[in-house]
Amino acid sequence: MIDLRSDTVTQPTPEMLEVMHQADTGDDVYGEDPTVNELERFAAALTGKEAAVFAPTGTQSNLIGLLSHCQRGHEYIVGHGAHTYMYEGGGAAVLGGIQPCPLPFAMDGSLPLDEVERAIKPDDAHFAITRLLCLENTQAGKVLPLEYLRHFSALAQRYELRRHLDGARVFNAAVAQSVPVAQICEHFDTVSICLSKGLACPVGSLLVGDQETIRSARRWRKMLGGGMRQAGILAAAGLYALKNNVARLHEDHEKAARVAEALATLPNIRLQEEPQTNMVMLAQDTVVEPLQQHLLEAGIKISGVRWVFHQDVSDDDVDKILDACRSFA
Rank of each mutant, 00 (worst) to 15 (best):
R5C: 09
Q11R: 15
Q11C: 10
E15C: 11
E15G: 11
M16W: 04
L17C: 14
E18N: 14
H21Y: 14
Q22C: 10
Q22E: 11
A23H: 00
T25Y: 07
D27G: 00
V29D: 04
L39W: 08
A52N: 07
A55Q: 07
Q60I: 12
E75F: 13
G79W: 03
G81W: 11
H83L: 01
T84L: 14
Y85Q: 05
Y87W: 13
G89F: 01
G90S: 03
G90W: 05
L95T: 06
L103P: 07
P104G: 11
F105W: 13
M107C: 12
R118E: 15
I120C: 09
L132H: 07
T138Q: 08
V143T: 02
V143I: 09
E147L: 01
E147G: 08
L149C: 10
F152P: 03
A154Q: 15
Y159S: 07
L161S: 06
R162G: 02
A168M: 07
V170M: 03
F171C: 15
A176S: 11
S178F: 11
A182H: 09
I184L: 11
E186Y: 11
H187K: 05
F188V: 04
D189G: 05
V191W: 07
L195S: 01
C201P: 04
G209R: 04
D210T: 01
D210W: 06
R215Y: 02
W220C: 03
G227V: 07
G227S: 06
G227L: 09
A231F: 12
A235W: 05
G238Y: 09
Y240V: 10
Y240Q: 02
L242M: 07
N245A: 13
N245F: 05
E251L: 14
D252P: 11
H253I: 05
A257D: 08
L266G: 11
P267Y: 06
I269G: 08
Q272K: 15
E273W: 12
Q276E: 10
T277S: 09
M279T: 14
M281E: 15
Q284I: 15
V287R: 12
V288K: 00
I300W: 10
G304W: 07
W307N: 02
Q311K: 10
Q311I: 06
V313A: 00
V313H: 03
V313M: 06
D319C: 01
I321N: 04
R326D: 08
S327C: 13
